[in-house]
Design a protein around this nucleic acid. Structure first.
Lengths: 203, 203
DNA sequence: AAATGATTAAAATATTTGTTTAATACTTGT
DNA sequence: ACAAGTATTAAACAAATATTTTAATCATTT
């Protein structure tokens, strides 16, 4: 005993993740999840106590995955500013290519339940104390960093990385950007974004 | 007769707009709307036929407002590239300050119901034919615009404008950006974003 | 083989939630 | 003031959906 058949539990979780990220909590039906996972409806409640519970687990894991790796880079003493920018752009674009719905999912949750986030994820790791932040200020120099709030550069970095994925349907319909072109562009952005950010710093 | 008590109908619509934009369609309950508008539940169906109907009306109006003004700038023959960038940044940041939840709302809707959008809003106005697009290509010059897909610059422009509002809770909790600082930064970005974009073009 | 746990189908239950109804109050034109 | 139309309300209804239960079957372990 105790050899929990993970296969089934994992199947549910995987399916739930897909559907929750696609449609959000309220629009997702437990029946959808069961059907997608190809298991009996009752098993959703058998393994996870409730839909709410299942959602929380997935949400937490997603957020952890999304932010914890980011934190490592932000607080890495060894790497230079340059290296950090390249690492962040590259790693996050790869992550987003494999999980393109995650950012909207997380940003929605952040908007509707900001409190939870504070406790469980951010955990007081203020990015203003990060090595990256210090390196930006240092590179800007005292005069420029007085004029240009370094937080702008954080917003820009995140926005340049994430927004194409969030706004993808828009670019698809309003600009005719298809899968192939999109993927190519995302690869290009791994190199472009660090350059753009550096230009903003040195301009 | 015929003096439709607009006060009530408008109250419902206003409340619905707030809540729909905050929580999305599925997560919004007609009771939430009624309560927020401080009117009887039945009036929602009395004035609007159904929740779905009410939503469509609001969605359409929001999207129209959001995109139609943008189109005007994009297709304006009279203004220069420089002027367009300034106008877009300025006008959109102002709009987003007054309706900060709109982008997430629209992007969510775009993700879950792309079809509706195509027909009713975009209406075949391909941005690649816009004056702005041509002006960007022109300014880039033939060699650069071969290397750097101009769509990148659209993504960047939109992302730089919109993302701070979408990611606001994140910047709040992870970087301690409070209301006052945020507003100040958004004002600054009206001038900064055009500069950044121009740097990307000329770099 | 017995026991235990996992899975299924089906039904029952409970809750949430969009919509409708029927009665009442209100407004307006005459 | 009255009648007709309109607005508003409380309550009921109906449909969707999360959850639980039951009984039976299958799989694995002891």
């Amino acid at each position: 005993m105790m050899s929990t058949n993970e296969s089934t539990e994992e199947k549910i979780k995987a399916s739930a993740k897909v559907i929750f990220m696609q449609k959000g909590f309220a629009a997702t039906k437990t029946r959808d999840i069961a059907e997608h996972a190809d298991i009996n409806l009752a098993l959703v409640n058998y393994y996870f106590r409730s839909k709410e519970n299942l959602f929380q687990q997935i949400m937490m894991e997603s957020m952890q995955g999304f932010f914890s790796s980011m934190m490592k880079v932000f607080f890495d003493e060894a790497s230079s500013l340059d290296e950090k920018l390249n690492t962040l752009a590259s790693a996050y674009i790869d992550m987003l290519i494999s999980q393109p719905n995650m950012p909207l999912f997380i940003l929605n949750e952040l908007q509707s339940n900001p409190e939870k986030f504070v406790k469980k994820v951010s955990a007081g790791a203020h990015l203003k104390n990060s090595v990256l932040f210090k390196q930006i200020i240092e590179t800007l120099g005292p005069d420029k960093s007085a004029k240009l709030n370094p937080v702008h550069l954080f917003m820009n970095l995140m926005g340049l990385i994430v927004f194409p994925f969030i706004g993808r349907p828009m670019f698809h319909f309003a600009m005719g950007v298809e899968q192939k072109e999109f993927n190519k562009m995302m690869q290009e952005r791994k190199e472009l974004i660090p350059i753009w950010i550096k230009d903003m710093i040195s301009a």
